[in-house]
C-alpha cells in the first residue's frame, strides 16, 4: 500500500490537501472532471493556466498543480484575458462560481464572450454564495431560501447558457456534478476548441443551499440530479432556466465557429 499514489497526484498540489470543501460538495467532482480532461487532452502542462476568482470554487486554482492564479472577486476572466493576450500560446482555464462569474463578473463574462477570447470557462453553479455563508445569487431559483432572501427568493434567476450563447460563446454545455464522464468529455471538447467556451456544472452545496432549503445532504442532491436531469443536446438556450427543484436540462447546447479575438486581431494587422 505504501507505494500507492493518488492517481491525480501529477495535477494536484498534494501538500495542500485536505481541501476546504465541505462534505457533500460538488466542486471536488468538477475538479476531478477537469483533471481527467486535461489528462486526456494530452496538452503541454507548462502551457496551461488555471485562473479562479473568489468563493468556494475560487479555491480550485489553489489545488491544481499548473500555473494557477487565485484572483480578486469577479475578475478571473479579465485576468485570464490578460494572460492570453500577452502570450497567446497559453491555454487558459477559468474555474469559478456562479456568483463570481455571473454576478460581479457578469460584465467580463459577456465581453469576453463577445470578443471570443480563447479560454475555457468552467462555471460551478451551486445556486448560492457559499463562502460568505449562503446569500442569494443571481442563479438562485425562486422561491429558494437563502440568508438574504429569508422570505424566499422572488427574483427571476439567470440562465447561464443563454447569457453565454447570446453574448457570443462558441461552445456551451451544462452538466450536473453527477454526469462526471460527460462533463469530462465536454471540458475536453472545450479545451480543443478555439474561442470562448462555457461549461456550467450544477453542483450541490450541502452546507448552505441544501441545509437552508432542507434538501438533504450531497448524496440526496445527487439522487435528485439523477432523477431529474434530462439530456437534450442543442436545446434552444431560452428553455434552459432552472426552477426550484425542477427538472434540469443538461447537454451540449452550442458548438459553433467564430473567429477568436486573436485571429481577428491578426487578420486586421495583415490588412
Amino acid at each position: 500500500m505504501k507505494n500507492e499514489t493518488h492517481p491525480m497526484e501529477n495535477y494536484l498540489r498534494m501538500d495542500r490537501i485536505p481541501h476546504i470543501w465541505c462534505p457533500g460538495c460538488g466542486i471536488g467532482l468538477a475538479v476531478t472532471a477537469l483533471v481527467s480532461a486535461i489528462e486526456k487532452a494530452n496538452l503541454d502542462l507548462n502551457k496551461l493556466c488555471v485562473v479562479s476568482g473568489i468563493g468556494c470554487t475560487g479555491r480550485v486554482a489553489g489545488y491544481i498543480k499548473l500555473d494557477s492564479f487565485h484572483t480578486t472577486h469577479g475578475r478571473a476572466i479579465p485576468f485570464a484575458t490578460g494572460i492570453k493576450l500577452a502570450n497567446p500560446e497559453l491555454k487558459l482555464i477559468v474555474v469559478s462560481g456562479d456568483g463570481d462569474l455571473i454576478s460581479i463578473g457578469g460584465n467580463h463574462f459577456i465581453h469576453a464572450a463577445r470578443r471570443n477570447i480563447d479560454m475555457v470557462v468552467i462555471c460551478v453553479n451551486n445556486f448560492i454564495y457559499a463562502m460568505t455563508g449562503g446569500q442569494v445569487a443571481p442563479t438562485t431559483p425562486s422561491p429558494a431560501y437563502t440568508t438574504t432572501s429569508p422570505y424566499g427568493n422572488f427574483e427571476p434567476s439567470s440562465n447561464v447558457p443563454q447569457i453565454a450563447e447570446s453574448a457570443g460563446a462558441v461552445y456551451v454545455a451544462r452538466w450536473t456534478a453527477l454526469h462526471i464522464r460527460r462533463l469530462t468529455n465536454s471540458i475536453l471538447e472545450a479545451l480543443n476548441k478555439p474561442g470562448f467556451s462555457v461549461v456550467e456544472v450544477i453542483s450541490p452545496c450541502a452546507q448552505y443551499y441544501s441545509r437552508i432549503n432542507r434538501l438533504g445532504d450531497g448524496m440526496d442532491m445527487m439522487k435528485f440530479y439523477h432523477d431529474n436531469s434530462e439530456i437534450k443536446h442543442f436545446e434552444p438556450t431560452d428553455n434552459l432556466s432552472i426552477g426550484y427543484q425542477k427538472e434540469i436540462t443538461v447537454g451540449k447546447f452550442v458548438d459553433r465557429e467564430r473567429p477568436t479575438y486573436t485571429e481577428s486581431f491578426q487578420k486586421w494587422l495583415k490588412k
Binding site: 463577445r114 440562465n159 447569457i163 447570446s166 453574448a167 481577428s264 486581431f265
Partner: peptide, 19 residues
C-alpha cells in the same frame, strides 16, 4: 489605432436573453 476588429454586441439579442 489599427482599426476596429472587435465584434459589437447584438444588443437586442442580449436584451431578450436577459429578460
Amino acid at each position: 489605432t489599427y482599426s476596429n476588429f472587435e465584434r459589437p454586441f447584438n444588443m437586442p439579442h442580449l436584451a431578450k436573453s436577459c429578460g
